[in-house]
């Protein structure tokens, strides 16, 4: 056995020097990757060395293979070690950095804003949906029949005067209340059913801070075999408690609306003072909220229902007013004024 150093040993040493030197010198993962490819890649110097084994004498192959393989292992380990070192150094450097300014203002994501009328309407719809009410949508230009006659409002009734209604040339009108949908709903659905229909309504009246010629209402209608004042009371208390997200007391007073009999004005316990007495409720503890009542048999008839068989309750909630109450809006004209700054004053999103 020869003790003479083989000629290729110098080449291995030289390749090791080049490869390991480049690896040690790498300061970033990218240069490390270059060094690794320079050694072990398809055209790398260690790879090139490995390819020489075929040209060697058989007696030398074993020793050469061991030496070259050892080099490849060494290089691979060196790359791993170097990579770990670079990563750790970077982490340490980032953690040691004291220049990050956490007080710079947040970046504006430019959130959009949904109109408060839409928000409140959707919130109410969701309350009603959760209690099995369908949500319907009916036209704003209505026939005189659906807006008046079908609701038991005959021609002599003062509500039919020009003073209260926007009429269109040709005889149709802009609905004066969402109640105009009642008869439509009765024709659309097989009883029993319950539904709400929100939307725009119109009144021919001059505007001020608390009146607008266009505003939003939400009509509620329940049709069943047996519907009593007791049911109405329970329904209204439950629904309004869900809407106000707290326990609400309700009371009924006589109120005259041709399409309900008996008809009521519904008061709710004052949400401002909890019935302790304040300026909002004029010390009475009660605030007038909405008109409601048991559906008049003539309305059921107009809806194609037999009043001996079917009964119902209905209410009309002022959505615009509810928005004003909830957000302290002191001028109704802000709602439809088209000023983006008003809408953007509310929380973004839906």
């Amino acid at each position: 056995m020869s003790t003479e150093t083989p000629a290729w040993m110098a080449d291995i040493d030289s390749a090791a020097l080049t490869a390991l030197g480049a690896i040690e010198a790498a300061a970033t993962l990218a240069t490390l990757r270059e060094a690794e490819v320079g050694a072990l890649g398809r055209k790398g110097n260690v790879t090139a060395l490995m390819k020489r084994i075929g040209k060697l004498d058989k007696s030398e192959r074993k020793a050469f293979g061991a030496a070259a393989g050892g080099l490849r292992g060494k290089v691979t380990r060196a790359v791993s070690a170097r990579r770990e070192a670079i990563v750790q150094a970077a982490i340490a450097a980032e953690l040691a950095d004291t220049t990050f300014d956490e007080t710079l203002p947040g970046l504006d994501g430019a959130p959009g804003h949904v109109h408060p009328l839409s928000r409140v309407q959707q919130e109410l719809e969701d309350v009603f949906i959760s209690m099995g009410f369908s949500v319907l949508d009916y036209p704003e230009v209505e026939s005189e029949f659906d807006n008046f006659e079908a609701l038991n409002i005959p021609g002599w009734h003062p509500a039919r005067d020009m003073q209260d209604t926007f009429w269109l040339e040709g005889g149709h009108l802009l609905r004066t209340h969402t109640s105009a949908g009642q008869v439509r709903a009765m024709h659309q659905f097989k009883p029993p059913f319950r539904a709400v229909f929100p939307g725009k309504v119109y009144r021919y009246e001059s505007t001020d801070a608390s009146h607008d010629h266009t505003f939003h209402q939400l009509e509620g209608l329940m049709i069943g075999r047996h519907v009593s004042v007791g049911h109405l009371l329970d329904s209204m208390r439950t629904l309004l408690s869900a809407i106000f997200k707290r326990d609400v007391q309700v009371r009924l007073r006589p109120g005259y609306f041709p399409f309900v009999e008996p008809g009521f004005e519904l008061d709710i316990s004052c949400q401002v003072c909890d019935q302790k007495g304040c300026s909002v409720c004029k010390q009475s503890g009660w605030v007038e909220l909405l008109p409601c009542g048991l559906v008049h048999p003539n309305v059921l008839r107009a809806g194609g229902l037999d009043p001996d068989e079917w009964q119902g309750w209905a209410f009309g909630l002022g959505l615009s007013r509810l928005v004003m109450m909830r957000y302290g809006v002191n001028d109704i004209r802000l709602l439809m004024g088209g000023d983006a700054r008003f809408v953007e004053g509310f929380h973004p999103g839906t």
Binding site: S134, R194, H231, D234, R237, T238
Partner: peptide
């Protein structure tokens, strides 16, 4: 019904949950 109810006092009428059909609402 109204005549009786208002003299009786609507605030004395016990509220009662209506019996309703269990159906999914139409949207």
């Amino acid at each position: 019904v109204e005549e009786l109810g208002r003299v009786f006092g609507y605030d004395h009428i016990p509220s009662e949950a209506p019996q309703v059909a269990a159906r999914p609402p139409y949207l």
